[in-house]
Design a binder for these strands. Structure first.
Lengths: 341, 341
DNA sequence: CTGTTAGCGCCTTCAC
DNA sequence: GTGAAGGCGCTAACAG
């Protein structure tokens, strides 16, 4: 920097102002600015972020903290969100680093904060993927007293934590809308486990149906287990035989369709199925699986940019606000009209 | 730090030595060290990496540069490698950041170098996933003149760039071994596109077969296109009817098995299939897909730790060396004995 | 064995 | 409008 200043015939202070785009405020001549830019060009000068971080306390870096990194990398969900982070950060000239996995043991969160301070991170993205783990929320709250934190939840849970997440309402509405238009009246729901999360989804389905004057049969909530126990699903299905189903997630949808086919149920002739996730397997499978595509890249991008904006404006991210992002229903071969419609 | 020094009754230099684990070399009393640790504890002191990076030039951060980030995040391959990076870096107290995608336009590589210098990155991981792009190799070579670079290639290409990659030789041997033991003699190969990469795989298969006194029928190289053109694959298969196939990747294997079933070929009764990737869909599909599981986490972890070791030892990473990592054949339901064996 | 000193590269008042 | 000076938090020689 000193060399640049000398080459341009100005002082290092001037160079600093120009490099940081504060030349205008400081009222520096156009000519002087040009001279500085020329010098930078000639000398191949690259400013040192570390040095400026030392004095300003600003590193232009944020951290990503996850609640369960195995899922983060094993499902395509996590990696798509990551992809959004990369884009979002890049667009604003920021970078991000991974910190500890909060849930490995009970002291990880202090490590996170320590790392964040060591590296002068300006904010944290908290990736919530295990649903309703009270501990994760508490850690988030605790972290957010020392550093800006924005939460991202990328699994499907209508009653999950506030923060950036998919618009579950919309997802359900889109599916029901499509089914009803095609004449389906008895609509089922399937998931790997029937837990609190599934139950809230069922509640949303129920309300969507009610708004259309249809009712939901509680018997149409199906557990779609692994292959070794898939028989229980088939049996349960055959008792009710709904003509349409929403299944969480695509993998479960594939297993359900396959198992049902062996029992003589044809998709989409006898049953229409919409999965969730839009994973690559949707198009490898036959019939190609209709699915709801969650806006994961968008969530990642918007979340990190919101965080950055808060950091730059000096405002604390709102911890209580729900940011629902709308995805898209992707219709393929596994959906059709209700039998006899 | 000054406060810590005062509290402990020593100088900042002593604190620095203790914090950086150089207390031993400098011969600092146990008692003094304890005093420093106590002070650190009491004052909740966190060292500032940025500041030390300024003076040492060492940031304990490396960068990850990819050749095609879309693939990085769309396939489970990329995200598993990333997971390895996270672990590998963490184990050594390092962090990593994402830089530009080299291939977006022709000037991205200078941006990469600029970012690396701005952030005092100590090394670069070059993710090669598009196979044999001369440009990527050149960029890698160019980068490595200014900064340590180690390459990671995570697609399947026996003749790809040197660096960390899966042991293709082993992958093929394992499959062939298994097939031969089960009495298969005519073994085929399938892939989405029959290009240079596939051809080198075929060559490896050919040699493995030759070593066992078997020959490879060039007519048994099959293109497994998307659904709209899958008929061509089925036709080609029916002409040769090999009893076993290696298919790149799992998605293609699923399409192949499904299409063939519609043509009356049963897996594994008439045909044994081994895919590649061990993606989640292997166990969602029926029959559950046998596959070769590439050691992606291991590759990521080893690659970044090799890079870090080079950085710390001050040695340049070898650009020409092949680091083949061995994966594992995962046998499930899509493989069986040769018909009549 | 430990403290003193002199920077690392940069930013930011303040006079001029 | 611009430069000089001081300091950010830390490390590395060297002196004692």
């Amino acid at each position: 920097m000193r060399e640049v200043a000398e080459y341009a015939g100005v002082s290092t202070a001037t160079v600093s102002l120009v490099v940081n785009g504060k030349a205008g405020d400081a009222g520096i001549t156009e000519a002087t600015q040009q001279a500085v830019y020329n010098a930078i060009e000639k000398l191949q000068y690259t400013p040192n972020r570390m040095a400026s971080a030392v004095v300003t306390g600003r590193s232009r870096m944020v951290g990503v903290v996850s609640a369960l990194s195995r899922e983060l990398f094993d499902t395509q969900f996590g990696s798509r969100v990551l992809s959004g982070f990369v884009r979002g950060a890049r667009e604003r000239g920021y970078h991000f680093v991974f910190l500890e996995d909060i849930t490995r043991n009970s002291e990880d969160h202090v490590r996170v904060l320590q790392d964040a301070r060591e590296m002068c991170l300006e904010g944290l993205i908290l990736l919530i993927d295990v649903g309703r783990d009270e501990k994760v929320f508490d850690v988030g709250k605790w972290l957010s007293t020392s550093i800006p934190v924005v939460s991202v939840q990328f699994t499907f849970d209508p009653e999950g934590a506030p923060g950036f997440r998919v618009n579950h309402q919309n997802a359900v509405e889109e599916c029901i809308d499509h089914f009803v238009r095609r004449g389906h009246e008895q609509i089922g729901f399937g998931a790997r486990h029937i837990d609190l999360r599934s139950r809230s989804t069922v509640a949303v389905i129920e309300r969507a149906l009610a708004r259309r004057g249809l009712s939901f049969d509680p018997g149409c909530v199906f557990e779609v287990p692994r292959w070794d126990r898939i028989g229980s699903f088939v049996d349960a299905y055959l008792k009710k035989r709904p003509s349409a189903m929403i299944i969480l997630y695509d993998g479960e949808a594939v297993r359900a369709v396959t198992a049902l086919r062996e029992a003589g149920i044809q998709v989409p002739r006898d049953l229409s199925v919409i999965g969730y996730g839009d994973s690559p397997l949707c198009t490898d499978f036959a019939p190609a699986l209709s699915t709801y595509r969650p806006p994961l890249e968008e969530i990642g991008r918007d979340a990190i940019q919101y965080l950055i904006r808060c950091v730059e404006d000096g405002t604390a991210p709102r911890r209580d606000e729900v940011r629902d992002m709308t995805g898209q229903l992707v219709l393929r071969q596994s959906t059709g009209s209700a039998p006899g419609h």
